[in-house]
């Protein structure tokens, strides 16, 4: 039993991984064709925005802050692409992808500057940004506009054997794991764990914070593309659905709200768990009104487990 606990403490995402596996087995039991090659690309494509919004929430949490605006940023990117870029003739991927990602990263950077330079509280800054983005989305695309055929469809289907969703998730993952090889992630974790220590040791805490939010924005931009892939229209109304989903995924995956602990794998397994739970409840005929209730219950249980039973008992520093 102790060995199991040690494992959980070593890998903060272990609980979410286990939960995801259990839910996967249950899903397969109810619907045996759940993982069939024909359904897989579609399944993964529906999953991708969840995972990417979870990714987007992670860097700011690791830096000891919080970004509530990543979900609305993803839906804003969706509206911006479908209702602004395509009509303006900028819909080709060579043009649209860099524009979309730059805008998303820019919004993230703006959050970072408001928090690290202007010193607004993260909740205040990003809640403000949330309303701003929801408002902008409604302004540019009040009613859903169907998108003409475009490059994002690839991510809903597949390229040869490869499910398209793996490209969006993979791109974000690849970026993160190459950052892990630089000093950035160490700086990020140290800043989130103890900004006093990081600052006193010579880490440029301000730059690290801004970059954390920028990276979150970039991931939210990729999430926007993944979302566009499945809805193929502008869906400003989805903003509220995704608003807190990313945070839920990250926290369920063991990323600490206090900063400094966690990572992208946690958000991945957290998002997969939430998605599988949703599928399971839908497939087993549970009333849609109860699905939200189930989300909440799983999240609370997951966080309580993570915070009490499974958290490493680090010695409290006396100073």
């Amino acid at each position: 039993m102790n060995r199991v606990l040690t494992l959980f403490q070593r890998w903060p995402f272990a609980f979410a991984l286990l939960l995801a596996l259990v839910l996967l087995v249950l899903n397969l039991a109810i619907s045996p064709s759940f993982l069939s090659p024909a359904r897989l690309p579609g399944t993964l494509a529906t999953l991708a925005p969840f995972v990417l919004v979870g990714f987007a929430s992670t860097p700011s949490l690791l830096a000891g802050g919080i970004d509530i605006s990543v979900g609305p940023l993803a839906t804003f990117i969706n509206c911006f692409f479908v209702a602004v870029l395509i009509p303006a003739g900028l819909g080709d991927w060579q043009l649209a992808a860099p524009i979309v990602l730059a805008v998303a990263a820019g919004v993230g950077a703006l959050n970072g500057i408001l928090i690290a330079v202007v010193r607004l509280h993260p909740v205040v800054a990003t809640t403000g940004m949330l309303f701003l983005l929801v408002g902008l989305s409604l302004t540019i695309a009040q009613n859903p506009v169907a998108a003409p055929d475009n490059w994002t469809e690839v991510f809903a289907g597949g390229v040869g054997f490869l499910p398209g969703a793996l490209i969006t998730i993979g791109a974000a993952g690849l970026l993160w794991f190459s950052l892990r090889r630089t000093a950035f992630v160490s700086n990020l974790l140290a800043t989130g764990e103890s900004d006093v220590s990081a600052y006193g040791s010579g880490v440029n805490v301000m730059a690290v914070r801004i970059l954390a939010y920028t990276l979150g924005g970039l991931f939210a931009g990729i999430a926007g593309i993944a979302l566009t892939a499945i809805v193929q229209s502008s869906q400003s109304s989805l903003a509220t659905t995704y608003a807190l989903l990313g945070l839920a995924a990250a926290v369920l995956g063991g990323t600490s709200l206090a900063g400094g602990r966690g990572g992208l794998l946690g958000a991945l397994f957290g998002a997969v768990s939430i998605y599988l739970l949703q599928q399971l409840l839908t497939a087993s005929g549970v009333a849609p009104s109860l699905i939200q209730f189930a989300y909440g219950a799983v999240l609370v249980v997951g966080v309580v487990l993570g915070a009490t039973l499974l958290a490493p008992r680090l010695k409290r520093s006396a100073s």
Partner: peptide, 27 residues
């Protein structure tokens, strides 16, 4: 500094080199 400034969940190695790196570039 007078306060013992460590990042608790980071490894000893990371803590020794904390702040010596650039934002991306390792020392």
């Amino acid at each position: 500094f007078q306060e013992v400034l460590t990042a608790g969940s980071q490894s000893v190695l990371e803590n020794v080199w904390l702040g010596s790196h650039g934002i991306f570039r390792r020392a």
